[in-house]
């Protein structure tokens, strides 16, 4: 109709079209990049697991579980390391649950708001970020030297407990926080004291969350090698610890020892050890998932 308008209206959709294509391409490229980074991380995970299973699977035999470590790769086994980790795990569980859950109950349910509790909270958030090797130095100074426990299972378990107590406190407090106030009010209304309320009503409701936190941090502690190396845990132990005062080795330390040797045969043993360690940690984690799904949905 209008001769002046027609060139403009012919050019406009074209201009718009160009910009649209460019933006579409950008959209695709951006999606490609972030999707690729996700796949890269997953790929790394699967390749890591694959390569370790590939190298170590053949050595996974009964002998591996029943032999002590040896200078000869063919005879070397994981027995003392497995027993050492079980000992460590049991003792660490006792100490860390007692102190971790106790502190969480105190801070979340019982404590008055004062300078003392705020100091505790500051130290917990500080401790959660301290590298594990520093805890090893603390254990070396306090448990091994000052309390003279030597390089014993007990010293190792106490050190690992200190390492995970802050994590357990934080997880347990979250679990206690999620218990609704109506539970507490109902208990008080029936005349229960503060401690009775916490012991009989709040804590039982929070158990799934607390247990999940405890198990996950235990799994972390059982994989730690650095603090135990600082304590001077031995790498060659041809006996099973019989009491908390015996010296010990543990799975991560034995793996480290095998991995740091130049011979290929010891590397194979290290991969087999890693399979056992990862299996152990996987059982822990599945237990946590099971507890969460089985008991997690009440209230």
């Amino acid at each position: 109709m209008n001769p002046v308008e027609s060139p403009a209206s012919a050019a406009k959709p074209n201009l718009f079209q160009n910009k649209r294509t460019l933006r579409l391409v950008k959209e695709r490229v951006f999606f490609g990049i972030i999707f690729a980074s996700t796949l890269l991380a997953l790929g790394f995970l699967f390749y890591l697991l694959f390569s370790i299973f590939h190298q170590g699977w053949d050595h996974l035999s009964v002998d591996f579980f029943t032999n002590f470590p040896s200078r000869f790769p063919a005879k070397a086994g994981f027995k003392s390391a497995i027993y050492g980790t079980v000992w460590l795990g049991g003792l660490t569980l006792i100490f860390s649950v007692f102190f971790g859950v106790g502190a969480a109950l105190y801070l979340q349910e019982m404590s008055p708001r004062n300078r003392f509790t705020s100091w505790i909270e500051i130290s917990i958030s500080t401790l959660a970020g301290v590298p594990s090797i520093i805890y090893g130095m603390l254990g070396l100074g306090i448990f091994v030297r000052f309390l003279d426990l030597g390089r014993s299972v007990l010293a190792g378990a106490l050190t690992l407990s200190l390492l995970i107590i802050p994590v357990i406190i934080i997880a347990s407090r979250e679990a206690l926080k999620s218990v609704p106030d109506s539970v507490r009010m109902a208990s008080y209304a029936l005349g229960a004291s503060k401690w009775q309320t916490v012991r009989d009503h709040v804590l039982p409701s929070a158990i799934p969350g607390v247990a999940t936190g405890v198990i996950l941090s235990m799994a972390r502690a059982m994989g730690e090698a650095a603090p135990l190396i600082l304590l001077g845990a031995l790498t060659y132990v041809a006996f099973i610890p019989g009491s908390p005062m015996d010296s010990f080795t543990a799975m991560p330390i034995q793996i480290f020892n095998w991995a740091s040797r130049p011979q290929e045969a010891f590397h194979d043993l290290a991969s087999t050890g890693i399979i056992v360690l990862l299996g152990f940690l996987m059982i822990c984690n599945s237990a946590a998932i099971f507890i969460r799904s089985r008991w997690g949905k009440r209230l």
């Binding site: 502190a103 100091w119 401790l127």
Partner: peptide, 21 residues
């Protein structure tokens, strides 16, 4: 409550212990 306060004290003692050692 005293007992629980003691378990909470462990965190402070750990921090002080690290700095001291």
């Amino acid at each position: 409550i005293r007992g629980l306060a003691f378990t909470a004290m462990v965190s402070i003692m750990t921090t002080v212990g690290i700095i001291f050692i």
